[in-house]
Amino acid sequence: MKRISLILLTIIVCISCGQKEQHHENFNSDEMMIRISEIGIEPEYLDEYLSILKEEAKASVELEPGVISIYPMYQKENPTEIRILEIYADKKAYESHLETPHFKHYKTTTLKMVNSLKLIDMNAIYGETMPLIFKKIK
């Protein structure tokens, strides 16, 4: 009985390791699209803008499999200066994101609120850490 339990445990561990290995093999950071959006907001619209942005970010991450991150933040000393870390599985996922109802709603309703917009495309230096970063968040 101990021998059978040991064999079963060994099989489970091997399958588990194989799945983790396969997950990392399927991950390709070179295909990811990474962008930092720098957005300036008119102060009188800040609360309304943040409300709309939160809805859009939540919907994007929850509903779109190719959206890895829409992570909005603001400068501590200047809350009207918004930054969004956007990470997409690939360019196709980004292009699909632009066609979603929640993104179109965000874009059209916040247009008058934005006084500056700069989109900065980035490349990962060590993309292999990406699965580890998100694995740590529980």
Rank of each mutant, 00 (worst) to 15 (best):
K112A: 12
G66T: 13
M130Y: 14
Q75N: 14
R3W: 15
V67E: 01
I4T: 14
L9E: 06
I34K: 10
R83H: 03
L50Q: 09
S96K: 14
I133W: 15
L63Q: 15
A57I: 01
A57L: 02
I36Y: 00
L8F: 04
L85R: 02
S116N: 13
P101A: 05
I4F: 07
N115C: 08
V114Q: 06
I137S: 06
T10F: 13
E86A: 05
M113N: 06
D121M: 06
L85N: 10
E38M: 09
K135Q: 04
V61P: 03
F27C: 01
I36P: 00
V61L: 09
Q75D: 11
L46A: 01
I125A: 08
G40K: 07
L46K: 02
I137Q: 13
K104Q: 11
Y71K: 15
F103Q: 09
Y45L: 01
E95V: 04
Y49Q: 00
L46H: 06
K76S: 05
E86Q: 03
V114D: 05
H97W: 06
S37F: 08
T80Q: 05
P65C: 11
L6S: 11
G18N: 02
I70A: 06
K138H: 14
A89H: 11
N28G: 00
K91W: 14
I84V: 13
H105M: 14
S69Q: 05
F103W: 09
K138W: 15
F103L: 07
I137M: 05
V67R: 02
I137K: 14
N123C: 04
I39W: 01
Y106D: 06
Y74V: 13
D90A: 06
D30F: 13
H24F: 09
L111I: 10
E95C: 04
M1R: 10
T100I: 00
T100L: 01
K118S: 07
E62G: 03
L117H: 14
L6H: 12
Y88G: 00
S16P: 02
C17M: 12
Y74C: 09
P65S: 05
S96V: 13
E38P: 07
I12M: 11
A57S: 05
D90N: 12
V67K: 01
R83E: 06
L119C: 03
M122A: 03
K58F: 12
M122V: 02
Q22V: 15
H97I: 07
L50N: 07
T10R: 04
S29R: 01
Y49K: 00
E64R: 07
K104Y: 04
S16N: 12
E128C: 08
I133D: 15
M73A: 15
L132W: 11
I15W: 08
Q75Y: 09
L132E: 15
G66A: 02
A93W: 06
I133Q: 15
K138E: 11
P72A: 00
S116R: 03
A59E: 07
E55A: 09
L6G: 02
L50R: 03
K92G: 10
E56Q: 10
P43R: 14
G18W: 11
I82N: 02
V61I: 15
P72K: 00
T100Q: 04
K92S: 08
I12E: 08
K20T: 10
D30P: 10
I11H: 10
S69P: 00
E31S: 14
I70T: 12
T109A: 01
I70S: 03
K107C: 09
F27S: 00
E55Y: 04
H105G: 03
K118H: 10
L98E: 04
M113Y: 01
L6V: 07
M33T: 13
D47K: 02
